[in-house]
Design a binder for these strands. Structure first.
Length: 267
DNA sequence: ACGTGAACCTGCCGGC
DNA sequence: TGCCGGCAGGTTCACG
């Protein structure tokens, strides 16, 4: 569940359970370079839980705990660890007796304790573009970025252009803006439309707690509702809600890509 | 320097 | 039923 709306949902759910707590013990269940210097978190208290793009950032004072869920990472805060979590990687035990865990079958997720603000070992975070729902996401910068001769899909997946978009929301944003994902060098008017769509789409998805696949539930037993609003993602063969043309699935920049041939022209 | 493709893992689903 | 290939919401590394 790891694009901006899903990570923001995790942040909002976990923050009240984590902020003000002290990490008493760090239990790393698997030796993996994806987990770095975690023992340094022991004895630290969590002052704030923030999000940057798809990263979670726990403020530990002079240190900072960076978290990324990868493709399959799930986090929760529980009184007792459920035995059905078959891929527990890391558990942070808290001073109130609760446990903050990362369960991650594919091990693409990352956790690292760093000096606050020192993202040298995390290039994506170090070069993260503007937050799409924030003030620093400027339409002028975005228009310039989208004028480059790369597929729109590649540019939107690039975290330096705008933070937090992934495969689902890129396809959905292209559909809503009527832009073919393989199109290159967008004119300014089209890029402006896409800019507006991205902000609206992500705000709506956050309000719906993101998109959940299959039967996933997070640590609180909740799940996202945005999947009911998906218009192209995972809808290959189904009629477009706008024009009725069947949605097509292709591969673009190495990712499964969904679009409506009727509404999205000009590849 | 920049861009694309493969690699990194495990689980699940559909087809034979 | 069982095996195999293909695919999955991301990032990073190796190449051209």
């Amino acid at each position: 569940m790891p694009e901006l709306p899903e990570v923001e949902t995790v942040r909002r759910d976990l923050a009240p359970l984590l902020v003000g707590r002290t990490i008493t013990r760090v239990e790393q269940r698997l030796e993996d370079p994806h987990y770095q210097d975690l023992a340094r978190a022991a004895g630290r208290s969590i002052r704030e839980l923030r999000r940057r793009g798809k990263y979670l950032l726990a403020d530990l004072g002079e240190l900072e705990l960076l978290g990324h869920l990868g493709m399959s990472g799930r986090m929760g805060v529980v009184r007792a660890l459920p035995p059905e979590l078959r891929h527990l990687r890391v558990v942070f035990h808290l001073d109130d007796g609760a446990a903050w865990y990362l369960n991650d079958p594919r091990r693409f997720g990352r956790l690292a304790v760093v000096i606050t603000g020192d993202y040298a070992g995390h290039p994506t975070l170090a070069h993260m573009g503007p937050e799409p729902l924030g003030e620093d996401f400027r339409v002028g910068d975005f228009v310039r970025a989208m004028a480059r001769p790369r597929p729109v899909k590649a540019l939107l997946l690039d975290q330096q252009v705008v933070a937090g978009l992934g495969n689902i929301y890129v396809d959905e944003a292209c559909f809503r803006a009527g832009v073919h994902p393989a199109r290159r060098g967008l004119p300014a008017a089209t890029a402006r439309r896409l800019y507006r769509v991205i902000r609206e789409l992500l705000a709506l998805a956050v309000a719906h707690r993101g998109t959940t696949f299959r039967d996933f539930r997070d640590g609180q037993g909740a799940h996202g509702a945005y999947q009911e609003l998906l218009q192209v993602y995972e809808r290959a063969g189904q009629p477009c809600g706008r024009c009725g043309t069947p949605i097509v699935k292709t591969v673009l920049v190495g990712r499964g890509t969904h679009h409506c041939p009727g509404c999205q022209r000009g590849s």
